[in-house]
Design a protein around this nucleic acid. Sequence first.
DNA 1: ACGATAATTCGATATCTCTCGAAATGTCAA
DNA 2: TTGACATTTCGAGAGATATCGAATTATCGT
Lengths: 120, 120
Amino acid sequence: MEPKAAIGAFAALAQETRLGVFRLLVQAGPDGLNAGDIAARVGVPASTLSHHLGILERAGLLRAWRVQRQIYYATDYDGTRRLLDFLMQDCCGGVPELCRTDIAKTIDCCPKPAIIQGAS
Amino acid sequence: MEPKAAIGAFAALAQETRLGVFRLLVQAGPDGLNAGDIAARVGVPASTLSHHLGILERAGLLRAWRVQRQIYYATDYDGTRRLLDFLMQDCCGGVPELCRTDIAKTIDCCPKPAIIQGAS
DNA sequence: ACGATAATTCGATATCTCTCGAAATGTCAA
DNA sequence: TTGACATTTCGAGAGATATCGAATTATCGT
């Protein structure tokens, strides 16, 4: 990932409405929500929301597709993963003993079922 | 974590110099680097860097301490974890089957030793 | 206390972005 | 093809932030 792309993605998240939209869609899951529903949920005019959705999409944080007259948006999990990967790349210069901070555990998207989780 | 705090943290990362500094310190590990060394590495004047370090520190992404005449900076792993946790909170509404994207694995700070890793 | 070093604060300019209504685009049903 | 709906694009004013040199503060060795 290029630094420019990462900067665009972090800038996209550094704004109240957009952060709210992104988190809403993270919680909504892969099926996403359409633009109108999102606008109603976050309480901004359609034109303003459209601007923000475009920024999030161009940043690689959301994906969009049309269903009839509506446009649906959902988290781009791959893009999000790439961003966080870039941020923490080569953490501690690759010496595991130095920084066992278990960042991974705490951001585990959709935790694994209890049995599998216990076996890890 | 408050949305305002998260916005501040993402804004802190949404800038070329600061993102470079943060990643440099992620790779440097818990011992960190002093301000002078960081300035030399990223190639900006001391005053400019100081401004950026302050923003990263106030955002909870770095911690700082004095050693004689120098001030050292290192990643605040706890603050970073809280930020990423906030971002991905309640992913997919808590239904694991929907989004097994393994974001966690790819940002695993300092990967576990091979034997333990293989056993998971 | 003094000079040297390390880092921060100050001040001013330039650049970027948020915001919304109005208008335009694209899609659908009849 | 006509009208209605969903979303995006346009345009302009208000607010926020990056940048650097100069000045200031803090710490150390002698």
